[in-house]
Design a protein around this nucleic acid. Structure first.
Lengths: 289, 289
DNA sequence: GAATTTATACTCAAATTGAGTATAATAAGG
DNA sequence: CCTTATTATACTCAATTTGAGTATAAATTC
């Protein structure tokens, strides 16, 4: 009897940090079987994620389906989903929110990357004088600071896998000689996480999904920092505001922040027309430098 | 015992017409069960599509997975795929290539649309003075000639479904009073087709997948017409060429066409670097007018 | 009340895009 | 064999969009 498994990448952004809900203290993504009582796949996922987090999920999107060999030769189907929410205290033992940059530190380009240098050195050692490998490295990781495409999360992960620089990949082969504690994940859960990151980074540019991650009222800086957290890149402030204005995404509430240093920021909310399903055209983020 | 079904939307472009392979004379998309011998889901799909068409498939991409209630309360999982190929004679009885505009005539914007006017009239009758419905109609179908977004295939289909203007939707309700012969499809196959169209229309703008649909050598006009067929829109010739040049997608073969009227066209091929996996950035098609 | 801090508004050059025109090279017709 | 029709290719230019920066406003802090 083949079983159908539902796997969730539940994302929230807290304090400029994109986090995912994990179980077993970061070792696995939460997952649960499709049950007869579930009306649909999405309903099934929604049901047990809300059961686990006691928090309604705003947005759900299917990521990918794959088949895995199970014990006894049977074949299981796993369907993974991206879900957006806001962080809430979890009550389940072992269930924790983890920064996704914990698993993919090289994907955070917001700070100066001393880490990436070492990574690229090791990649180049692997490439040696194989020109195709070298081309893939520069294509995915860019030259010094140019041409970084933040959407290629999965491709970069797969390159690192091939190069044996991912703990799951080395476990069987070169053995646990380089155990990076806490970064390893069950089966291909880290790969699923990479897929979710790539999908979300692409999505925020042309669909208004960020509002699932923000409170009802927010400042433009909070909105910008949420986008920056997801994209892993800093954005040009004046141009970001122009970008948001051109989308007619938000409107002023009339209120403003108070108590913090500096000029108070106006509070905004998302427009009703945005919440009622709308798509904005293919645009680019106004990156800085 | 739940069964896993693989459903294929196999697309080819012939004579400026995007076609899909169907069975039962256009009533259904080809589909087959996942068998124990298949190494993976993709391998399974590839295996039996090639068995049916005797033609290698270049490109496969997963579309969507859904669960359907089967006889006896069991639940089946269906996984749909988009595949690209070139049209070949089929040998199976009932297997035919059909234009996708046969099923979605309003999606072809290349010719003056006398049809769309009638469709919108009927939609507006359905909307009556419901302002939200009216907003959705203009959002998806645009004002007179402006703002048509070719990627919203699925959303338009779903709006028409809600409005009862799709044969599958009316079959049970308002009955077969308006049977549009040959446009009806099994289950949600037409919905799957809409998903495939939307995905492919989005993809051709930022990933070089068109070459799966073209012969080894081709003229720039053939390339343009293939893109136009998929997008359902005419493109501005000089700007299209500039667009293709900027992508560094193709290179001259040195040969040219001959025999036809007019100046002979240079023949091009796709560059090796394109074939070896490459992503070009998010761009827009140079639409005309 | 001066300094600091954060928010918001405006400016301007560079690059990209939309739309059109001009020229080249062939086949067909008289 | 020269003219016309037809298709391919090359170039131009204004309008818009983007990248990057500077200036001003309104609060807190010392």
């Amino acid at each position: 009897m083949a079983e159908t498994e539902l796997i969730a990448v539940l994302v929230a952004v807290t304090d400029g940090d994109p986090r995912v809900l994990t179980i077993e203290n970061g070792y696995a993504l939460p997952s649960g079987p499709l049950e007869p009582g579930h009306r649909s796949l999405q309903a099934g996922l929604r049901a047990w994620v809300e059961r686990q987090t006691h928090h309604p999920i705003g947005y759900i999107e299917q990521l990918y389906t794959f088949a895995d060999q199970q014990r006894g030769g049977a074949r299981g189907i796993s369907i993974s989903y991206l879900a957006l929410s806001r962080e809430a205290a979890t009550e389940y033992p072992g269930a924790t929110w983890r920064s996704w940059y914990h698993y993919f530190p090289w994907e955070d380009q917001r700070t100066a990357p001393p880490l990436r240098a070492g990574l690229i050195t090791r990649l180049e050692a692997w490439a040696a004088r194989d020109n195709q490998r070298r081309a893939r490295i520069t294509g995915l990781f860019g030259t010094p600071e140019k041409d970084w495409n933040e959407e290629l999360v999965l491709q970069r992960y797969e390159l690192l896998w091939e190069a044996g620089l991912v703990p799951e990949a080395t476990r069987s082969a070169l053995a646990a000689a380089t155990p990076v504690p806490g970064k390893e994940m069950l089966h291909d859960h880290r790969r699923i996480l990479a897929t979710a990151m790539a999908r979300l980074r692409a999505k925020i540019k042309y669909r208004p999904v960020v509002f699932e991650l923000l409170p009802h009222e927010f400042t433009l800086l909070e909105l910008q920092q949420t986008m920056e957290a997801l994209a892993g890149q800093t954005l040009h402030k004046p141009n970001f505001r122009r970008f948001i204005e051109s989308l007619e995404l938000v409107e002023e509430t009339g209120r403003a922040t108070s108590g913090m240093a500096g000029r108070p920021a106006k509070l905004f909310r998302f427009r009703a027309s945005v919440l009622a399903e709308r798509s904005f055209a293919g645009t680019k983020l106004p990156l800085v430098k």
